[in-house]
């Protein structure tokens, strides 16, 4: 198993956190993992992306030129990363913010109305967790339980009180696969 995922969206959509959570869960399950953020002025410009790799074997490069999956939270991210997805790969897209259709027919597309679902639960900020819930369910790389257990380690001290809400969002995401 070797899964390379690029996650991307606006700054503030919790892209980095979503990546760290998945990476942490992979580590907890004794897999080889890496997390690599975009950094520098690119981040200041309002977009953010990170690459997560989870593997049974030592990870050669933490960057991915041909990801197995992308999780895109907005249109610019879809435009930027869709061409890179491996043939046969999966595109998880936030259909709340992306109305456009995916122009490739060699990838699987999973549309998650993440913002709507997050609002339904009561906090628009957890759209990232809805997306991740969908990814975890669909790809079956790490156990959903491990992801939930990892929240405590990944969330900052001030956000620990939001664990239950995040768990709910992860659960919600399962519905989309």
């Amino acid at each position: 198993m070797n899964e390379e995922i690029i996650m991307a969206g606006f700054g503030g959509q919790g892209i980095m956190l979503m990546g760290k959570l998945l990476t942490y869960a992979g580590m907890k399950e004794d897999k080889e993992v890496s997390w690599m953020p975009s950094y520098g002025p690119e981040m200041r410009g309002g977009t953010a992306n990170c690459t997560v790799i989870i593997s049974d074997k030592r990870i050669p490069s933490p960057m991915s030129s041909k990801p197995d999956s992308i999780i895109v939270m907005n249109l610019p991210s879809l435009d930027k990363f869709l061409p890179k997805v491996k043939s046969g790969g999966t595109v998880f897209m936030n259909s709340s913010l992306i109305a456009e259709e995916v122009t490739r027919d060699d990838v699987k597309v999973i549309k998650v109305p993440a913002n709507e679902m997050a609002n339904e639960i009561g906090n628009s900020k957890i759209a990232n967790m809805v997306m991740l819930g969908s990814f975890v369910e669909e790809k079956n790389i790490v156990k959903p339980e491990t992801v939930k257990e990892s929240l405590e380690k990944v969330l900052s001290a001030r956000n620990q009180k939001l664990i239950d809400l995040n768990v709910k969002a992860l659960e919600k995401g399962k519905e989309f696969k």
């Binding site: 990476t23 993992v33 890496s34 997390w35 690599m36 990870i59 960057m63």
Partner: peptide, 10 residues
């Protein structure tokens, strides 16, 4: 390099 500095690994 920037990768070693920025990446997260266990």
């Amino acid at each position: 390099d920037g990768i070693i500095g920025q990446m997260m690994e266990p």
